[in-house]
Simulated scan of single mutants.
Amino acid sequence: MSDQATARKFLLANASFSILTGITCLSAAAPIAGLLMYASPDWMPLVLRLMGLGLLSFALIVGSIALHPRLSRFWTMQIVQADLGWIVGTAVLTWLYAESFTTLGLWVLWSVAALVMIFALGQYRGAKGIKPATTDVTFAIDEGTLVASTRRKVKAPQNVVWQIINDHPAYADVADNISKVEVIEGDAIGMQRRCYGPHGENWTETCDLYEEGRLYGFTVHTEADSYPYPFETVQGRWSVNGEGTDSEFLIEIFVKAKGNAFARAMFNKLAPSKFSGLLERLGDRWADRMEKAI
């Protein structure tokens, strides 16, 4: 199991346990207070309900971290620290007020702390092996259009990088969503290429921007009856800048979804989680080719 998978597994277990504990505190605060303490104060059920709300909020945060396509080492370690804080808090509470808790109450508190410790250790074990992403993928919204940017620095001169990003048929070798690319006609401005998806779906694109050795751009013919995706407009820009043996390439994809404002807003909200991993892998694979080509 990979480090990311290990950390993700324990984060999800942590979130699930927090949800279960939070719901229990909210729905049975008074009985739980009676089980935990010999003489439960009147305010104890309120404290348990507030703790339940806090645990549900915590579970939402942990779950969002765990389900992100690129698991963050930094945020996973923040959850580890929060878990350690819970364990330390339990130790201090039971040491200072041990006589206030029933034997069952002490067992419950330390059993929960033991589970939290397991989550913390599993998360830490996974997180310490997660390496920061070298391909930077970001998303932005510009007047309803989703802009996905993929940026990567490589140890290769600009001419080598340009040769590889301008090799259109080879694009299918590095992009998960493309199975084949063929140049139909032309070169530079006006060039047309046909792209095929993983299930045989295909569409045409026309080059509308070109600077030899530096950048090119394509507009996808989404208006065609055969276009398979629910996008109103799609444009792409591929560019490279370099100095000496170091370069940086940038891919920008501009997508405007079809439908009403709500449909577009939902697409813009959900698309980053679906496509960030794909774009990161594209950047990594291209960089690998560029650095091996020199």
Rank of each mutant, 00 (worst) to 15 (best):
K128F: 03
I19E: 14
Q4V: 13
P45I: 05
V88E: 07
T233I: 01
V161N: 01
V240H: 01
G89K: 10
V108R: 06
S18E: 12
F10I: 05
Q158H: 03
G129T: 12
I141Q: 11
N159P: 00
Y229M: 14
V220D: 01
Y124W: 14
M1L: 13
N159G: 04
A59F: 05
V47F: 14
L36M: 15
G22Y: 06
L26S: 02
S179K: 09
L20C: 07
G283H: 07
V112E: 11
M37C: 11
F254S: 08
T103Q: 14
F218K: 02
A29S: 15
S149I: 09
R214G: 03
S247P: 02
I65K: 02
T206F: 00
V147E: 01
G85C: 07
V88L: 15
L250E: 06
E212T: 10
L215W: 01
I130Q: 05
F139W: 09
S27T: 15
L93W: 09
G190W: 05
Q78F: 11
T6S: 11
T94V: 14
V154C: 05
A175T: 14
G54I: 08
D176F: 11
D83S: 10
A293C: 05
P198C: 03
L53C: 13
T150N: 10
I32S: 05
F101D: 04
S64C: 04
N177T: 12
L11I: 04
K292G: 03
A293Q: 13
L121K: 08
W238I: 09
K269S: 06
